[in-house]
Design a protein around this nucleic acid. Sequence first.
DNA 1: TATTGTTATACTCTATAACTATA
DNA 2: TATAGTTATAGAGTATAACAATA
Lengths: 164, 164
Amino acid sequence: MPEDPSAVDAAQLNAYFALMDVAGLLKHAVEQQLREDGDLSFIQFQLLARLGLGSPTGSERMTDLADGVVYSRSGLTYQVGLLDKAGLVTRAPSPDDDRGVTVTITDAGRERIATVMPGHGEVLKRLLQPLAAVDAETITELLSPVRDHMRAAPPRSAAPRRRR
Amino acid sequence: MPEDPSAVDAAQLNAYFALMDVAGLLKHAVEQQLREDGDLSFIQFQLLARLGLGSPTGSERMTDLADGVVYSRSGLTYQVGLLDKAGLVTRAPSPDDDRGVTVTITDAGRERIATVMPGHGEVLKRLLQPLAAVDAETITELLSPVRDHMRAAPPRSAAPRRRR
DNA sequence: TATTGTTATACTCTATAACTATA
DNA sequence: TATAGTTATAGAGTATAACAATA
């Protein structure tokens, strides 16, 4: 049994597998619900939720959106383009920087979120049933720092360009 | 402020968002590593790991693989086909049931796992850094029941067929 | 009849590189 | 020169339905 000193510790490895499995199963389930109830992909839902629930103004710049979701720029352009075409967001030049594009959720976008949320909640309640309220809080407390750590790390939306 | 009784509780909702964000960022990072170090997709890695590390014989039936990863049958056939073409697994009729196909990892498959594991561990160590060993164990303990619950739930590989 | 797995097909999503425009 | 965003393109992945074969 060779001991590999560069190996990640077993506890983290198990957490990693559990995390990826749960997230994968969960994503699969909610994607189905979002498609059926609101004709939305998971990422479109994330973007709408970020604009509609996370932003006080309902607006954000493309770059900020990209950093939140961690996406290629072109992928984000594509998804926002779909939302735009569906009338769920609008795009306009950023007021302070004419290079930028500010994305704003529309009333229809907010309605769409309201449409899918009940069903979304039901799926979550059903699948996360083993997770008591206290457990859920514990998970959030443990994972939030990880999320912040990863978002602060090098690979952000602009990185692919800088890296050459 | 309308109180929606069908709404999922806030603690679970936050855990859900944290979970999906972390898993998304993590997957993005490891996919890059797996592609660079071993020309593997994440799912191919999951399949190889399940066969090479999770199974005592190195073999599993397609249906069992599908239930583990939760995939469409055709998607699994596609991915296993790629692994087969790359010489990392072999496929043979199941000994007890001639309808079934038993997938077995090859020596080359085991070598491929060994090749990517060090780099994989490094990525995990770097990204999960905020997660102390105790925290990691806590997460595993909290998420494992969720995983089991979700895998036991209706939507399995055969379900789409049964459901009509 | 029901289940296992494959195939054909069509579609969605994603990334890379080249490009335009503004700072 | 560097950054913001779009576009063209090409490739990977996924799901649905129809299919063949076995239980």
